[in-house]
Amino acid sequence: MLTRRQLRVKVMQCIYAITQSKDDSLEKQEKFLKVSVENTYTLYLLMLSLLRELHTMAENHVMHDTKKYMASATDSFPDKEKFIKNQLLLQLVNNPSLTAELNKRKIKGWYLNADYIKILYKEIVRSRLYKIYMAQEGNSYGEDKNLIIDLFREVIAPNEKLYEFFEDDKLTWVDDIPLVNTFVLKQFKSIKKDESPSYFLPELLKDQQDMEFALKLLSKTLLNNKALEDEIQGKTPNWDKDRIADIDAILLKMAICEFLNFPSIPERVSINEYLEIAKEYSTPKSSIFINGILDKLVKEYKTAGKLKKAGRGLL
């Protein structure tokens, strides 16, 4: 679920937090990193539980409509229960593995925040997608799946109120929201009618080595901060560390740390990763600035024999 690039971003956030707070506690930042990684999975589960709550609200509305004497808008639909019979939604609702995981983690984010469910449900019911779906008789698994994908992409994910809720709940979720939304959509697009319940509980990391990589990158960058600053010194005309954007300085240090401490990662891979992160998190010209410095350093390290790379994909 989390890639190495996303782990690099989380390490960057930890180092930035130290820069801003002047708290140089490595132990505290390692704990923050682990919690930040774990919270990404919590956000993913919250998104799935949101869809379950929307299903519950739809059930309640259908039940309420059947008890009314006056006609309602839903009466024009061939099957008022079509949405709550949506097969992809039911895969989430009737999923014992997902229920157990939500209970295990005590995720009850919508219990005290039902207003967000109401807002989203009203937007869904008013949407063109919902009306077209409900107006058609019968439903195939493909049609059910496409509806949920389209509703998630066009109604749920872009909702500003929902974004504000997540932003206020956890600081690191601001960066995790696009990642999690993209992953949820990927899951929905790939799911099959007879999918195992465990499908919705993927591994957070590819393997334990990814977490070890992130922790090592964090500790090596922080513990060698002065030496890494010295490596940058003089690599650009009129260099002044006080004038370099904080994010740029952090990304440079992390990249140099990878060059010198991670022999299995090709230097070009490291450079490309940090350039992409700079484009997203720093100034418009940061990637050009960072690329220039890193290219100079790589040439110097190769000449001096300091760049010792070995492993798969390397000569």
Rank of each mutant, 00 (worst) to 15 (best):
P237A: 14
I149Y: 02
L92A: 01
L297F: 03
E267Y: 13
D24H: 08
E81D: 09
N159K: 08
Q13E: 11
E276G: 05
P158M: 15
E212K: 11
E267T: 14
K296D: 10
L185R: 10
L204C: 02
T66P: 01
V184D: 00
K34V: 15
Q29A: 10
I250N: 08
K106L: 11
D115C: 05
F83A: 03
K118R: 15
L218I: 05
Q208T: 06
E38Y: 02
K296Y: 04
A310K: 13
I277T: 01
E53D: 07
K309M: 08
K22F: 10
F165W: 07
N60Y: 08
R5V: 08
L205A: 01
D230G: 09
K186L: 11
M47S: 11
Y301D: 02
S264I: 07
D65H: 08
K104L: 14
K131G: 07
L48F: 05
Y130Q: 01
F183I: 02
E267R: 07
K118S: 15
I117E: 05
K10D: 00
Y281V: 12
L98T: 02
K192F: 05
K22H: 12
T172E: 13
K299P: 06
Y16T: 10
M134T: 04
D175V: 10
I290Q: 04
K80I: 15
I149P: 01
P78W: 10
D150H: 10
N225P: 03
A304V: 03
L222G: 09
W173M: 09
D246Y: 05
K82G: 03
R243P: 01
I124G: 10
Q208L: 06
L217P: 08
A73H: 10
K308A: 15
E53H: 08
M12E: 06
S219A: 15
N95F: 09
E137R: 15
L120W: 00
K192H: 11
A17D: 13
N103C: 13
L228W: 03
S97A: 15
S140L: 04
